[in-house]
Amino acid sequence: MTAPSTATKIRVLIAKPGLDGHDRGAKVVARALRDGGCEVIYTGIRQTPEMIAEAALQEDVDVVGLSILSGAHLELFPRIVDEMKKRGLDDVLLFCGGIIPEEDTAALSGLGFQAIFRPGTNTQDIVKFVFEHVKK
């Protein structure tokens, strides 16, 4: 056990927008980031774009990770990014994961998502991505 640390921590919001109710993936990612030393706010399933943006604001997170399996990402993600911009959250690192077809990659990076993690990703790669890209 090491000494308690009050140094600045990376705060991450892991959220599941839309109606799919299966959050195993989101929980695995949350747990991996916790073990990597992040403070992870997990909001549960069925979040609207407004709820995700508002939680990101209140929690002053450095990173937002979205998990989606329903196929509605091109519908929901632009609205989330929009709600975040409305609240002035333009310096938050964005990544996403789940069932996301390759052909949607360009659209999502255009929205500002810096990484897309698909099934089979090593969770350590996600932790590494967060630590390398977060603005602190």
Partner: peptide, 30 residues
């Protein structure tokens, strides 16, 4: 690891969009 899962908001979803409420999660940090 000093990491944390902050999950209390899950039980307070109805308050998220209420402008009269502000919810902040904190880790115990030792």
């Amino acid at each position: 690891t000093h990491g944390a899962i902050l999950g209390d908001r899950i039980r307070m979803q109805d308050l998220t969009l209420d402008p009269g409420v502000y919810v902040r999660s904190m880790a115990s940090r030792g």
